[in-house]
Design a protein around this nucleic acid. Structure first.
Lengths: 167, 167
DNA sequence: ATGAATGACATGGGAATTCATGGTAATCAA
DNA sequence: TTGATTACCATGAATTCCCATGTCATTCAT
């Protein structure tokens, strides 16, 4: 089974904040939760960040543990450590998938990203993101479009796959 | 269940100094108290430090035990040991959560951090902090802003997670 | 092949429980 | 005895739990 999220999809959000997680994402969450076993509900951590961020980033337990280890390795009292602690320990919300495969987003989180009736899930490597559909379309897509527009007509982004570690 | 605190939230403080602890923090306090059992109230230790510190740092019993062990390992009579003893043994306050999930902050502690009607709780790894809401907003956030301003426009603090152990 | 049975998935509703918060009475210490 | 601390009770709002339904895609027996 894959350890990485892949794919994107739209899901309804009801007025209790419940929203289905794409089934394939659930498999990854299960894999990434050391204490998960058949029949249980995988846990995960939602990092929402400060006011500048308008989406939710979801981490498997494994992924967040790795982050924690890195934070612990930074010198106590350093600004870097404080910043990261605030983000990953403070501005985050630990939760679990429920038995019907849903996540419950408390209104605090929904309000933060202005989520109403539909959420957009998109994989991002070892995490996935939850956006308000409209936000994603207007902001993210526009941003990428603009970026691509600056490049030559026939530019292929795949070149980035090749020249790595040499610049 | 997690042994680490995660999340942040605001809570009312009444004129008796009572304040609800975020429910998820309570779960961690329960986990971290060796003598806790279902139905009991978990204990914890609040470290308030000297006059320079304007927030309260809360430790689970386990966490404070680990600190104690480390202090015991320092040479008797050393300055380091004395300093740490003053902080963790002297400038601290052992207490317990009450049956309704609240903490009672004696006026000495409230005065120290100038706490009035609202407290801000924020996780910090294996401890959590209690701030006066306004203090946190003006001091902590301002400090971060200032720090971020010194960095390049498009700098992402998350790089600190990656280039570790190589500089 | 084909209609029926199976099972995972997305979504909804209501009841039961937990939470955050406030008030009052009882207890304590000086 | 008086101000403070602790124990008890109360309540609305939010959250969790449990159950139900519709839709696919897959399997299976005929």
């Amino acid at each position: 089974m894959a350890r990485r999220f892949r794919g994107e999809s739209h899901h309804k959000v009801d007025n209790k904040g419940r929203v289905s997680i794409p089934a394939s994402f659930r498999r990854v969450l299960e894999q990434g939760d050391p204490s998960y076993t058949e029949g249980l509900n995988p846990e995960l951590v939602i990092v929402y960040g400060d006011h500048r961020r308008n989406y939710l980033e979801c981490y498997t337990i494994q992924a967040i543990n790795e982050v924690d280890l890195k934070i612990d390795a930074l010198p106590r009292g350093s600004m870097e450590r404080r910043m990261l602690q605030r983000l990953f320990h403070g501005q985050s919300f630990p939760t679990a998938v429920d038995e019907t495969g849903r996540l419950v987003l408390p209104s605090k989180l929904r309000t933060k990203i202005d989520l109403e009736s539909e959420a957009f899930f998109i994989a991002a490597g070892d995490t996935f993101q939850i956006w308000k559909t409209e936000t994603y379309e207007t902001e993210e897509l526009a941003k990428t479009e603009a970026w691509l527009d600056k490049l030559p007509e026939d530019f292929d982004p795949l070149v980035y796959l090749d020249n790595m570690g040499q610049e």
